[in-house]
């Protein structure tokens, strides 16, 4: 029933320079997939293409449920979400930021409030809920981004370098959040990081991108 992704022969160029070359992978099982590799290797591009934010130059991204392909429409986009490295915080309270995904789905009132409060608790930001989202530290901002994504209960959660610009304390909190998601049978997580040790700590499946070429590091757990 859970969504999977079949990425086939993805190629992407920026200004004529190849960023991704014939990358293919099948995200079938739930769990935490970590894409790692040096800066500029194409991890984020791969993630953006896989999450349907950006089209590839060639190749296909097909989502499937029970082996049946799912059309790439708004309904599908509402079953997945991507947290960008620069989260894109609205000039509103933390609470309203997190409630946004619910609001656009027509979920309001007590139901929305309960979901937002749960998400806030999960990312340990309950004490900041009435604060303007733009006033948070970079680590808290990433946690806000994760809460904003989790509140809409995605089946696949893409995280693009969530710990790249945060301090060690927040980095550990984010790792704990990801592990807690896994423990609570949360969404499939597909995450990029250039931190190899973090990749080793979190990954069920490790993927490596080097010079635009994707290779599977294998199942780790």
């Amino acid at each position: 029933m859970r969504l999977g992704i079949e990425v086939s022969n993805i190629t992407k160029k920026y200004n004529g320079d190849p960023i991704l070359r014939n990358c293919s992978f099948s995200f079938k099982k739930p769990g935490v997939y970590i894409l790692t590799g040096p800066n500029g290797c194409g991890k984020s591009t791969f993630l953006r293409i896989s999450s349907l934010i950006e089209p590839p130059d060639s190749g296909t991204v097909i989502f499937f449920s029970d082996d049946n392909p799912v059309p790439a429409d708004l309904q599908l986009r509402r079953r997945i979400t991507l947290v960008l490295p620069k989260v894109g915080v609205f000039n509103a309270t933390v609470f309203r930021n997190i409630a946004y995904g619910l609001k656009i789905r027509g979920i309001h009132g007590r139901e929305a409030e309960e979901k937002v409060n749960r998400a806030l608790e999960f990312v340990r930001l309950s004490h900041k809920k009435d604060q303007n989202g733009l006033t948070l530290s970079s680590g808290e901002t990433q946690r806000l981004g994760i809460a904003r994504a989790l509140v809409i209960e995605p089946e696949i959660l893409f995280l693009d370098e969530p710990t790249a610009s945060v301090d060690q304390k927040n980095s550990l909190i984010i790792e704990e959040i990801i592990l807690a998601m896994k423990k609570e049978n949360g969404p499939t997580v597909i995450m990029t990081t250039h931190d190899q040790s973090q990749a080793n700590r979190l990954a069920d499946t490790l993927l490596v991108i080097r010079d635009g070429v994707l290779s599977a590091g294998g199942d780790r757990k």
Binding site: L74, R78, G101, R148, A149
Partner: peptide, 17 residues
């Protein structure tokens, strides 16, 4: 900031939203 457009998009907003 153009990131607001992307953030809304990633959360499943329609073009109008």
């Amino acid at each position: 900031d153009p990131i607001i457009r992307q953030a809304s998009m990633t959360l499943g907003a329609t073009p109008l939203q």
